[in-house]
């Protein structure tokens, strides 16, 4: 039984069937850990993030890391070429990934990436939007919701004025960006379901 890890945060979707489940997880973990560390470093630089309690910083990062990674790695999903680039730099076609078991999540990732790229955000806008994405993550584990909400409001206000300044003739850009937040939440839910369904046999 061949197994596949259809996630661009791994080096390759092919899994060596001779390896133990534990070593497969270990290798996968080693491949996505640098990206997660970058998300944490990014979070530390968000003004106000370090003022949240340690518990709330961890909770937001736990809930929001996947959503941040989706935004940061949107360009790995090339809707024109219909390919996904994995960490090794190798591209895999949608058709190939489908035969490995990729389903609705892959379609939704392409759809999201294409719409986000179409907004042509500057690096500064993208960074501020990513900060908004992180502080807008699921709040179920948050202790001090008021502090997180205040931080979210400040960041959204800053994003709004930046986007309006840069795109004065495209008033819809800011609204389209905010509408990406529920899209990301739904991608996160689909991804969680896939993770929970993924079984590694020892």
């Amino acid at each position: 039984n061949r197994m596949h890890l259809v996630c661009p945060m791994s080096m390759s979707p092919y899994v060596d069937p001779r390896k133990s489940g534990h070593s497969i997880w270990l290798e996968f973990s080693m491949s996505f850990t640098p990206a997660v560390r970058e998300v944490v470093e990014f979070a530390k630089r968000i003004p106000g993030f370090r003022d949240l309690s340690q518990h709330d910083q961890v909770s937001l990062l736990k809930a929001g890391t996947f959503e941040v990674l989706v935004v940061r790695f949107a360009s790995l999903f090339d809707a024109k070429e219909r390919t996904v680039t994995f960490l090794s730099g190798k591209k895999y076609s949608v058709e190939a990934l489908r035969t490995m078991g990729a389903g609705d999540l892959l379609n939704s990732m392409f759809d999201f990436s294409q719409k986000l790229m179409a907004l042509n955000l500057t690096e500064e806008e993208m960074s501020l939007f990513t900060a908004v994405v992180l502080v807008s993550a699921d709040r179920s584990g948050i202790e001090n919701v008021n502090s997180v909400e205040a931080l979210q409001e400040t960041l959204i206000r800053a994003l709004r004025s930046l986007v309006l300044k840069n795109h004065p003739n495209e008033a819809a850009t800011f609204t389209k960006l905010l509408l990406k937040l529920p899209d990301l939440r739904s991608l996160n839910n689909m991804h969680s379901e896939q993770l929970l369904a993924f079984k590694v046999h020892p």
């Binding site: 370090r50 910083q57 736990k62 890391t65 993770l195």
Partner: peptide, 27 residues
Amino acid sequence: VSDPASNLGLEDIIRKALMGNFEDKQE
């Protein structure tokens, strides 16, 4: 495992990456 983040060991990676931050704050 009912929590996908724990399943991936995400919390551990996050805590370790944040650690320097908390040490900075204590100094």
